[in-house]
Amino acid sequence: MSAVSLYKNLLATAAKFDNYNFRSYFVRRINETYAANRTVTDAAELNAIFTKANLDANTLNRQASISQMYTAEKLVVEKLT
């Protein structure tokens, strides 16, 4: 998987969190991490980043599902849809 598609996948998963604060946090961190690692060219380092991102994607997937199972009322800053 290319870096861009992994990044997009992660963002899509983070967006599935029902909890506003968790969703906002993971979206922010994924963006920050992607921006910080964009210039990395070293193969070993890239490999480590990919391994970690894939592990994170699995955790995020599971937890996004749980967040959808146990939902809370929307916050006062959240628009009702």
Binding site: N21, A72, E73, K74, L75, V76, V77, E78, K79, L80
Partner: peptide, 18 residues
């Protein structure tokens, strides 16, 4: 039923910011 449902703005949720 929740005690936290005092929506303060129309179209927004009612749970307080933590």
């Amino acid at each position: 039923e929740s005690t936290l449902t005092n929506a303060t703005r129309d179209g927004f949720g009612g749970r307080p910011i933590y």
